[in-house]
Amino acid sequence: MKRLLSATLAALALANPAAAHFQLIYNPEANPTSPGEMPLLLTFWHPHENGHAMDMGTPQEVFYVFRGERVDISDSLTPVTFTGAHNSAAAFQATLPVRRNGDYTVALVPEPYFEEAEGIYIQQLTTVYLNKGGIPTDWSEPVGLPTEFVPLNRPYNVIAGSTFSAQLLSDGEPVPGAEIEIEYLAAEPDMETFSAGEATAQPMPGGAIVALTDANGVFTFGVPRAGFWGFAALGAGPETEHEGAELSQDAVIWIRAYDME
């Protein structure tokens, strides 16, 4: 299988190691206790340092998987404006109907974003997990994206101070030796105003936090604090071109960690 990170993207990462593009699917509650319509903020941003936000095009797909059933929720999309510390950008809100107990795996296939400075497109295929009622169902199953992470720990109640592991797939096959970029959601958004809060942590010295997948495509990360953590495999997907330009088709997963009371 091809090596994941292209020379162009590697140069970009070295030039600006702390500024990580991360597609986000966000609601502050990963474990809802009551049925209802759960709003989800979809924004493309630099969440650790509350950096630059990028304009999103209309997503190609937004869906969730519940007990093996895939349900399209793209008709719930509403354009919104997301405001970070430095600028505002086009974003979207979607609605997740939470009814029965179990796992809700939400997946987003965004329109590729053109990074003008580098002349490449970026498409981050993103998953996030919610659970109602504390009853696990299918959190450990892939949802069929061209590239995706399959969690090996429940992704919605990781204990801060423990570890999280996941397997990276591309076209359904494990990806060994892939570099995984790790991001902390230090500036959590306000769901009423669609604006970023104050950053509660600073980027680490030495650049982006990274891990490597092993021979089975698995990585493990020690989660140091509570909150939302994102993991991205750049260029992991099978598609490498969009509208005549290079495409980085990335896999992204978000998890929720809690302090033990």
Rank of each mutant, 00 (worst) to 15 (best):
K2D: 11
L12E: 15
L24G: 04
I25R: 01
Y26L: 08
Y26E: 08
E29G: 14
N31W: 02
S34P: 00
G36A: 08
L40N: 03
L42C: 09
T43F: 15
F44I: 00
Q60V: 01
E61D: 11
E61F: 01
F63K: 01
Y64V: 02
G68Q: 05
V71M: 14
D72S: 12
L77Y: 04
L77F: 13
A89D: 10
L96A: 09
R99Q: 10
R99M: 15
L108A: 10
E111C: 13
P112M: 01
E116P: 00
Q123I: 07
Q124A: 08
V128D: 02
Y129C: 06
F149S: 02
V150Q: 09
N153R: 11
Y156E: 02
F164R: 04
P189D: 01
M191G: 13
F194P: 12
S195K: 14
S195W: 04
G197A: 06
G197P: 04
P205G: 10
G206I: 01
G206W: 01
A211F: 05
A215E: 14
G217C: 05
G217S: 12
F221W: 15
G222E: 10
F228Q: 14
F231G: 07
L234M: 05
A236W: 07
G237I: 06
E241C: 06
E243M: 06
R256V: 00
D259M: 03
E261G: 08
